[in-house]
């Protein structure tokens, strides 16, 4: 997997405890077109506090252009931003 750390638009749901689960997100592909990716499966969910900055890291699986891919999403609590971290 390659590190991208690309900001993305996200639809997610938040549990009563405040924990988010990503559902689907939109990002632009290399040719500038928007693509929407549905999160098919969340394999792991971890929390990191590197440099005191809390982030949730999700390892997910989706079909992208017909190929099943594993990638990582990050949610930064201090900025409420979602990132496509690695793919």
């Amino acid at each position: 997997m390659k590190v991208l750390m690309k900001p993305i638009e996200m639809i997610a749901y938040f549990e009563q405890e405040g924990i988010p689960t990503p559902i689907r997100f939109r990002t632009s592909s290399e040719n500038g077109l928007h693509i929407v990716i549905k999160v098919n499966k969340i394999i792991t969910k971890t929390e990191e506090k590197l440099a005191g900055n809390k982030m949730y890291v999700f390892r997910c699986m989706s079909f992208i252009n017909g190929i099943e891919k594993v990638y990582e999403l990050k949610y930064e609590l201090s900025t409420c931003k979602w990132f496509l971290f690695k793919i």
Binding site: V3, L4, M5, E48, L50, A51, N53, M55, F83, F85
Partner: peptide, 13 residues
């Protein structure tokens, strides 16, 4: 170190 960790967390290789 703090700057380094912050950069790594934000995708710096």
């Amino acid at each position: 170190s703090w700057e380094a960790v912050h950069r790594l967390q934000h995708g710096s290789e």
